[in-house]
């Protein structure tokens, strides 16, 4: 499709008129119109995303009092700290475990919902989306009360069965379990809805062909459903990995990084150092450490998606 609106040549027109027609032509170009329409968003992103991103890069190169350029000195310092490597390890455990379970639960629930007759499906879809539409800061407060060290509703219930009390947020292992659980609870509906949309777009003929070939339930999933959903699975995983790595609210509200720093992830530790400890350059360096990890993940996943796109 031509990108330029055709204009008959006006031979012999004066110079200013030619300029004006040039401008008109530019304005009538679809790409110009598209650029102008996206300009507000570009300005917004530049102001709210790019500027802070470059500013935090600048901050990460300063010393503690922000008066001297130290280059990569802050990163060099971080690499020597045990707590930093503990945070790296925990961020990876947190993000990978949470994304895996969100994807697994989302996949299973999407299949259940897909098999519900169309009439009642809408109600189920709406109900299952509730955790995802509640602001996480608010829902995590409710979880905090459920996990409260002294007045946990879970422990109260478990006590009737002679179990507990379980130190949900007081013991390192349980605290990690608790923050991952809340993250899975919050994020699984997103996977569910994406997978459900993907499932609905799988042509029914493929299943019919598989059934004629004698494929069982597992073979239908493995050879038909999963290959058809691969791109959606890859994109949702990447998106969720980014969001989960950058999570702040759930950990901050539930454990604030404790006990003994065993639930800190990049964002909460960056906040502890930068804002609560008044060492903004070091805090900026901690938060920037997420960038290369996520960039590598994004490159691999998107390359895979592109490859499959080209093959098809």
């Amino acid at each position: 499709m031509a990108d330029v609106a055709l204009q008959p040549d006006r031979v012999g027109a004066k110079q200013p008129a030619r300029n004006r027609s040039g401008l008109q032509r530019a304005l009538k170009r679809k790409s110009t119109a598209a650029f102008l329409m996206t300009l507000p968003l570009i300005i917004l992103i530049t102001l709210l995303v790019l500027y802070p991103a470059f500013y935090s890069l600048h901050l990460a190169t300063l010393n503690k009092s922000m008066q001297r350029f130290v280059g990569l000195g802050n990163f060099e310092f971080l690499f020597k700290r045990d707590t930093f490597w503990l945070v790296v390890k925990q961020s990876c455990i947190f993000a990978i475990t949470a994304v895996f379970f969100k994807a697994l639960i989302g996949f299973i629930v999407a299949h259940f919902v897909h098999n519900i007759p169309a009439k009642g499906q809408r109600k189920w879809r709406g109900m299952l989306l509730v955790p995802w539409v509640i602001p996480p800061a608010m829902s995590t407060l409710a979880w905090l009360w459920l996990f409260d060290p002294s007045y946990s509703a879970f422990n109260y219930t478990l006590s009737f069965f002679g179990i507990g009390p379980i130190p949900w947020t007081g013991d390192a292992a349980w605290a990690r379990f608790s923050v991952i659980l809340v993250n899975v609870w919050y994020g699984a509906p997103f996977f569910m809805i994406m997978y459900l949309a993907s499932l609905k777009s799988v042509p029914e003929q493929l299943y019919e062909a598989a059934a004629i070939d004698g494929a069982n339930w597992w073979q239908r999933i493995w050879y038909v459903t999963l290959p058809m959903m691969r791109n959606i699975i890859a994109i949702t995983t990447l998106f969720s990995l980014i969001v989960t790595f950058a999570n702040f609210d759930i950990v901050r509200i539930l454990t604030a990084g404790g006990p003994l720093d065993h639930t800190h992830i990049f964002a909460t530790w960056a906040f502890r150092i930068g804002i609560e400890g008044s060492d903004i350059p070091l805090g900026a360096s901690v938060s920037l450490f997420m960038v290369p990890i996520l960039a590598v993940a994004a490159i691999f996943i998107l390359r895979d998606v592109n490859k499959r796109g080209n093959e098809s």
Binding site: P149, S150, P167, T169, G170, A256, G258
Partner: peptide, 20 residues
């Protein structure tokens, strides 16, 4: 109390007010 490792600034207040 066994859970003091997880206490925040509200925990001690609740401890007193609850009479525990």
């Amino acid at each position: 109390p066994p859970d003091v490792a997880a206490w925040d600034d509200a925990s001690n207040n609740k401890w007193l007010v609850s009479g525990r």
